[in-house]
Design a binder for these strands. Sequence first.
RNA 1: GGGAGAUUAGCUCAGUUGGUUCAGAGCACCUGCCUUACAAGCAGGGGGUCACUGGUUCGAGUCCAGUAUCUCCCA
Length: 882
Amino acid sequence: MPNLSKHYTSGTVEKKWYDTWEEHKIFESRPDDREPYSIVIPPPNVTGVLHMGHMLNNSIQDILIRKARLDGKNACWVPGTDHASIATEAKVVNWLREQGIKKGDLSRDKFMEYAWEWTDKYGGIILKQLKKLGASCDWSRTAFTMDEVRSGQVIQAFVDLYQKDKLYRGLRMVNWDPEAQTVLSNEEVIHSEENSLLYHVRYPVEGTDEHLIIATTRPETILADTGVAIHPDDERYHHLKNMKVRIPIADRIVPVISDDYVEMEFGTGALKITPAHDVNDYEIGQRHELEVIDIFEDDATINDLGLHYKGLDRFEARKKIVKELEEKGFLVKTEDYSNSVGRSERTGAVVEPKLSLQWYVDMKSLAAPALDAVMTDEVRFFPSNMKNTYKHWMSNIRDWCISRQLWWGHRIPAWYYEDQIFVATTAEEALEQAQKAFPDQNLTASDLRQDEDVLDTWFSSWLWPFSVFDGMDGGDEVDYYYPTATLVTGWDIIFLWVARMVMAGYEWKGEKPFQQVYFTGMVRDKQRRKMSKSLGNSPDALELIEKFGADGVRFGLLSSSPAGGDLLFEEKLCEQGRNFCNKMWNGLRLIKGWTISSSTNSTSDKETIIREIALTWFEDKLKEQEDLIQKDFDEYRLSEAVMKLYNFIWNDFFSWLLEVVKPPYGDAIDQASYDRIIQIYENLMKLLHPFMPFVTEEIYQQLRLRKEGDFIATSSWPEGGECDTSMFDTMESIKALVTQIRDLRNKHQLKQKEPLDLYFAKSESTTNLLRQSGMKEILIKMAALGKVEQTTEAPKDLHASIVQGRIKAYLMLPGVDVEEERQKLEEELDYARGFVKKIESKLANERFVQNAPEAIVAKERKKLEDGKGRVAMLEESLEQLL
RNA sequence: GGGAGAUUAGCUCAGUUGGUUCAGAGCACCUGCCUUACAAGCAGGGGGUCACUGGUUCGAGUCCAGUAUCUCCCA
């Protein structure tokens, strides 16, 4: 036996093959005559580390790209990272703070130097980790959203949209993240129900003794109130129309206005209006020309307008103001309340509505072709029900706020002079424009002021499917690879990313960015909680790989993860994958341990006959599997495909076929059979390779002597083709008989190897079964039988009856209990009679016979015949017991 | 408030155009085995009124309506 260790060692094998693959550059792709199959990676955060979601997502991409490679397509998986403005800037700011440096003390240029230093230091770690997972990316194409090529296209996109009038600067209420101190797009705000308090506050009505009671969750904004609203139809407050109220604490006198936005049923039916700090209030304020008083600094502490609360954080101020309201008799009551609170996706800070001047993309002008593409399946979604979500968002689309008050990112290419805006790819061009606009003023570069803000990171990511090919302006690469084949991503970024890529694709390439989108589910823990750092419920990705091997982890992630469905992760799944590797490894050891004889003399004829029939059967089974797996790929049922392979390899190949063809101890195996077994094993490994690349490569290399540069990774997918199913039923009957015999042994506590005699009750079925060359021998070998013969009457000695389909047999068992045997037979008979009755009534129904397709009726007749035969066999056995 | 989806074995999920002995898989569980590839293993076994109620149909896990429970998205 070759020197193969008892257990499969994933660590060394995986490193060896990844290094070898890279040395041979087999993942690199250049345009050629073949059909392209390209995937662009959803770029992870440049300074991020690999987590469970990445592993799932990238395993799926790797499966697809490896399959395409085996299919002979020109497979190109482009890796890369994104600069993640908010997250990365926050990390850099923290890093600087640890060194005692404040961002505020740095110039923009100096800060960027530090940020690049940080990026160079920690950037790309995640890409190295992807290699450990087996990701077969073309690393020579690694892109970064802020590298030169990508940046140029981002700026170009901005300028182009501005020139097409699809981009504008506007004063709007925005979502302000006070922690990151930047504006956020609507999609970056996560709304959820949170427990809070509803405060009922008394507002004195001017010139009367009355009070108007107003319910609010944000009493600190009382300081910014500039009005109070009631519903025009609300009779309770009719008399207050056109009167004024006095704001508590602020002591400001403001008007009572009527507006049908007010919900009469909510709270007291009266609403305080704070135009500076609430989206709806702002609109009401606009309608009624109310003053706008902003009481917050950018970090959400109270400013000069907040009286003696100046300098306090908003939540601190809330506590204090409630106390003051209470002391001064303004607070009527406080009740528990649950309301929707928006938080920043990146920092978790409660988002503060704020009035601000920002850049927006006019989305309505981009949405139409993008909506159409998905609804007509020009871009196919898996699972398809994501189309509904997409449609809803696209049909109610709102403009996209793309400016961010950060330094890390692409600086907005807009320059200002007085009240004029000049948008251009460079400062020089902007200056030229300005000089043309103000010919008399001798403008120089220093007269123009560039916008301080950067662009939303997604404004670079939405170009990704063509920007990675430097394809904004066309070119051979983009012509060849675009549109890409499949996008694999989580459904949580369908709006942030997927929808926008489709829009950008049509806007700049006039074509969809990808053929299909495969949405993965979220990786959750057993309690269905989303895996997150803060919960600490996420296993360390690299430790997992170390423990179970990348193949094991990939198997674990894939085996229960249908498209769009969440994955409830447990280590057990990876363990199963590792065990599977070990099983295959040991199967290899078994085969490699056999001695091969060139002459047939050294193997008994019986074994040769067995092998001939078993291998022929299995080769056809394999073809059938190949077709089934291909269908699963076509429909993106990857979980099902991998589980099919798991079952087929473990149960059909190892537990059945190899046991059948295994030479008896000490015997050799004939060369012809051996070659067929190697070929089968090789094909199985090819089918499994996309899912478990390393172990399959290792086994592929061990199965035969390979030439330098011959890899399973670049081999070809086995063709399914015609398969002869004629032997399938017979083999299943044999298997079922073997199982029944083994069960009877177990129940009678007989050793598995003690030979038992078996007599078949003579019938057409049994004659047919035994006539097929080798079937009887397989039965004898697998069930460890002695004599196997046909008989016309039941044996007189103690035996157990076996009824399998239309086959009846008697297994000679010395210790069989007659009563037990009777009971068993009676139970089976009951079931069989019930079955017959059901079919009889079905066939007695004229409408069934008339309406059902002929084939179905024929099948039912066949079922009835079989069932009746079975009843007869069981009845006969029972009689013989007496 | 608007919308989407789910409910099948103890758990996680398949079940494709309504039709085969259709009620499945993996894990978990139980029994027996260290059998010369594998205890990371082998052989076998038990377990479900397909959420509930009606309807369409010759026939429903599958289609329709309602009910209950749960999940998610959007505002």
